[in-house]
Design a protein around this nucleic acid. Structure first.
Length: 273
DNA sequence: ACACACCCCTGGAAGC
DNA sequence: TGCTTCCAGGGGTGTG
């Protein structure tokens, strides 16, 4: 399930593979992926364009082919692969960007949850799906002070708030659990009740966990692969996610799995009071 | 503001 | 063994 580190890794691998390529044609076999735009119009706008740049905003990839920017969300299992056009097309391939050099960027998505939007470059932040997004964890203004100010009034459970992409972007179920374990905070704590020290730890570990996960190339717990088809290896560093009934690496108590905000939540009830 | 149910979807796991 | 049911999960929407 691609969260910020996985999307950042896909961005970096795709940058090395498709920048400068020219789109010759686009094939869409699952129109539902393309939102608010007919497939013909989607294709018409992209044919002849060059891939100029790739950015990331939260869990969204922004593939810039001026004057348009393709905003792609991988949701659960979306994957991009660059292949030669002779390669057989794998099952669940829904969108193909054919380039002029006989290579193709193929979008494959078993669950079909992924989405693509096409908006004018430079106006991305004014349109859905980016318009409602919250702060970037690596933005300069995301400080411990910012977090203190913004948690003060919030009555939601901390995990719910951290998963809420209109509050802060990039964290999903895996990294929220890992961050809260490192910060030694219970996921069901009401956000406004955190102490300054706890918020300092929370801020520190949001960046630390995400940074280390990016360095590891992301987490492959299900089927995640980067743009080159390679796995990440942060899964070997996970402290709580997916470790139900296994001993906490810090204190030995068995990791528990509860449900918070409708999501499976892993924690050590000894370390996270 | 917040919680919660539901929906999208497939395949692997669990249950029978 | 083979069938059916359950479940995972990001985010959008709708309801209370």
């Amino acid at each position: 399930m691609p969260e910020l580190p996985e999307v950042e890794t896909v961005k970096r691998t795709l940058e090395s593979l498709i920048i400068g390529k020219q789109i010759e044609n686009v094939t869409v076999s699952l129109p539902r992926i393309i939102r608010k735009l007919a497939v013909d119009e989607f294709r018409r706008r992209l044919v002849g364009r060059e891939i100029e740049r790739i950015d990331r905003r939260g869990k969204f990839l922004k593939i810039v082919c001026n004057p348009w920017t393709l905003i792609s969300h991988l949701r659960m299992e979306g994957k991009y692969r660059l292949v030669n056009k002779e390669e057989p097309i794998e099952k669940h391939t829904h969108v193909i960007f054919h380039f002029t050099d006989n290579t193709e960027l193929r979008y494959k998505d078993v669950r079909q949850f992924g989405t693509m939007d096409l908006v004018p470059t430079g106006e991305e932040e004014k349109h859905p799906p980016l318009v409602t997004l919250g702060i970037e964890p690596f933005a300069k203004n995301f400080t411990s002070e910012w977090l203190k100010q913004n948690l003060r009034q919030r009555k939601a459970k901390l995990k719910s708030l951290l998963l809420n992409q209109t509050f802060i972007v990039g964290l999903g179920n895996i990294y929220v659990d890992e961050v809260l374990f490192q910060a030694k905070i219970h996921p069901e704590r009401v956000a406004s009740t955190l102490t300054e020290e706890e918020i300092d730890r929370l801020h520190f570990y949001i960046r630390k966990v995400l940074t280390e996960a990016i360095e590891a190339g992301g987490t492959s717990v299900r089927t995640y692969r980067n743009g080159k088809g390679e796995m990440g290896y942060f899964q070997v560093k996970l402290q709580v996610y997916g470790r139900k009934n296994q001993p906490c690496y810090r204190c030995g108590r068995l990791i528990e799995r509860i449900v918070v905000a409708g999501r499976g939540t892993h924690l050590c009830t000894n370390c996270q009071q």
